[in-house]
């Protein structure tokens, strides 16, 4: 874990405490995937094009957080990247916040919006990419699979879905997506910065088919006493626990 990943973890946990509620386990499972996207560099260039001073820059890439429970992780990354966030952050993604592209209030709808954005990019022949972070439980809904089918049918090669798979279970994700005509990139270590960045790079270069990055993450990753323990999934860490976390991360 690099220094930035550690700092972002602390920042995200502080945001959860300031919001008064949150899903710390899911936030910490997703934070490295978002960090890799925003801070990943290849040959001196950013993997993900954005300008924190101009959040509405017309050539920016688009990031959709379908897994809205991980919003504190995105806030932490945006803040670290230089976006000027308001003092009162909303619990759901809101397009009025700089750096947030989509307003969402339901699960699995972010994937649908990302599909629409990728279609709009294809229509306008724009040089932009759409990245969407989705949770594994979203693929329990039929609508997610309808999106998967339409994206492959339309050959939306500018669409990349990052699947944050933090629960044990369905190992046939790869077969299912490939059957629909997607390219699947599986991460061996979903918390390793270099591997994540390399996967994004490969996704950017994919042609004529959408890409799925399958990341088998760990809930509460980076906090040894809470890692993969369901009782820590949706808790606010106490002051004592925060002190211990600071000792681990700093």
């Amino acid at each position: 874990m690099n220094e930035r990943q550690k700092a972002l973890r602390l920042k995200a946990l502080e945001i959860i405490r300031s919001l008064g509620k949150g899903h710390s386990g899911r936030v910490l499972s997703a934070i490295d995937l978002i960090e890799g996207l925003y801070f990943g560099r290849e040959n001196g260039r950013n993997i993900f094009y954005y300008d924190a001073d101009k959040p509405q820059w017309t050539e920016r890439d688009l990031f959709v957080l379908s897994k809205w429970e991980a919003l504190p992780a995105l806030y932490a990354v945006l803040s670290y990247a230089g976006y000027k966030l308001p003092e009162n952050l909303s619990y759901f993604p809101d397009r009025k916040t700089p750096g947030i592209e989509v307003t969402l209030n339901k699960s699995a709808y972010g994937i649908c919006v990302a599909l629409g954005m990728a279609k709009a990019v294809q229509i306008g022949r724009l040089n932009r990419h759409v990245f969407c972070l989705a949770a594994d439980y979203e693929f329990d809904f039929g609508k997610a699979w309808e999106v998967v089918q339409v994206a492959a049918q339309e050959k939306l090669d500018r669409l990349c879905i990052i699947l944050d798979a933090n629960r044990f279970g369905d190992a046939r994700i790869q077969e299912k997506f490939e059957a629909f005509g997607w390219r699947v990139i599986k991460l061996r270590d979903a918390h390793d910065h270099d591997e994540i960045v390399y996967a994004y790079m490969r996704a950017r270069l994919t042609l004529r088919k959408p890409t799925l990055i399958w990341a088998s993450t760990k809930k509460s990753a980076g906090i040894p006493f809470a890692e993969r323990k369901p009782e820590y999934d949706d808790v606010l860490f106490s002051d004592t626990e925060m002190e211990e976390i600071k000792k681990i991360l700093i």
């Binding site: 709808y109 919006v113 954005m117 279609k119 306008g124 609508k143 999106v147």
Partner: peptide, 21 residues
Amino acid sequence: LFMPCHDAIVLETAAGIASLG
């Protein structure tokens, strides 16, 4: 876009298309 899907999915996809103008 030919999209014979559930109405809610179609509307959110339309939202994505509309968000780019």
